[in-house]
Design a protein around this nucleic acid. Structure first.
Lengths: 209, 209
DNA sequence: TGCGCAACCGAACGTTCGTTCGCTCTCTAG
DNA sequence: CTAGAGAGCGAACGAACGTTCGGTTGCGCA
């Protein structure tokens, strides 16, 4: 109140971080609604009240879980892909890292956002709004990278960026779907093959690997 | 007990049918677990006990809901497509009717199975087992129609039927996903375009429409 | 040394969940 | 005409849900 720069919250919110790590894991498998405060507290050997004290309400916990999943997605998929050169290499990098991330089972239930989007597409509220916003950002990002590739002469200039982004994203989700539902370990490779051939058909460069 | 041929259950299970119709609708939007006996009873102006008496338990209700969704899917997608000629026309018919069925919002929450598969892919039990079985049947069916089209000379003989079935299914799910999450009314058309072009690339016939 | 605050706990709240029980209707078969 | 079965209701149950409250601990700062 007195000083402008408040002291950092003690121990840097380690408990909060541990809660969220476990929560994303559970939510990817059981859903954000199936994620229960009691269940989460038990798995962390905490009390329900001590746990929810970090967030205030279940809805705010869910929102924090979404943010955490976003951070993990960014560092698992987007940041590694950004090391690749602009244009087609970066586009292929985004797709490859996405498939690797889904295949690596970073979370128990596969891609968090595939599950969350399906769960909340029919439930209004701030959680849904945030998920929609993040998915929109992802698709817009894909589209922007495709446009870059066109500008750089990597892809044909008559490629419909929005259309191609839709198709690539659909193939990625299809891979996660088959991997999770059937345990089909070949699904990511199938999606990767489809993506490579789809890009090769509109590419002006040799598609590497 | 005495006679072998028991009498038909009175009024032909009309109430049971009405329950299931409403239940599939709710479940497509809120999920099979979010489908609540109390909520269902209220929407049907029934008592919880009177309702669950038709099924015995919630799990058996869920299984009945899955069977009902299957019947509706068969008559909305598979049966209309079977009127088309064997091979490529039937394949295109399956995809078109699937997209029309998703777009028509036959259920509040879009395709029931897309939602149910995502919800139950991480939860063991008979409901999940049945969903896996039906999804397997659908993908195998797609694959069989593709093989027919190859045999009839509609598609190139070196087409990988399993791979193509995966891709077509992924595009359909992508359309349902964008339609439900964003309300993107152009998504089915985008998927249809992608499917047409994908088929045209491996087709030996002019792809109609 | 003592004050204050954040972290956390245990207990309890009211609500909703799925399920069970006993009862009342309304048919229909004999 | 009567017996029996199925449909449906209302009340109640134990468990789990999210949330609230008061109290205890332990660390940092004055």
């Amino acid at each position: 109140m007195s000083t402008i720069a408040r002291t950092q919250t003690p121990q840097g919110g380690r408990t909060r971080r541990a809660i969220l790590e476990k929560a994303v894991d559970i939510a990817s498998a059981e859903g954000l609604e199936g994620l229960t405060i009691g269940r989460l507290a038990t798995e962390l050997s905490m009390s329900k009240s001590g746990l929810i004290g970090h967030f205030g309400s279940k809805e705010e916990l869910q929102l924090a879980v979404v943010e955490t999943a976003r951070e993990i997605f960014l560092e698992s998929v987007v940041m590694p892909a950004m090391k690749a050169d602009e244009g087609a290499p970066r586009l292929l990098g985004l797709c490859s890292h996405w498939l690797a991330y889904a295949r690596a089972e970073r979370f128990r239930g596969g891609c968090f956002f595939s599950a969350a989007a399906a769960e909340f597409d029919g439930r209004p509220g701030p959680v849904r709004d945030r998920i929609v916003q993040l998915m929109r950002e992802w698709l817009d990002g894909l589209e922007a990278v495709i446009s870059d590739a066109k500008r750089l002469g990597h892809l044909h200039r008559d490629v419909d960026a929005k259309q191609l982004a839709f198709e690539l994203h659909a193939l990625e989700m299809g891979a996660n779907w088959a991997f999770q539902l059937f345990g089909d370990r070949e699904a990511p490779a199938r999606a990767h093959r489809a993506i490579r051939e789809r890009l090769a058909a509109v590419s002006l460069l040799l598609v590497e690997q």
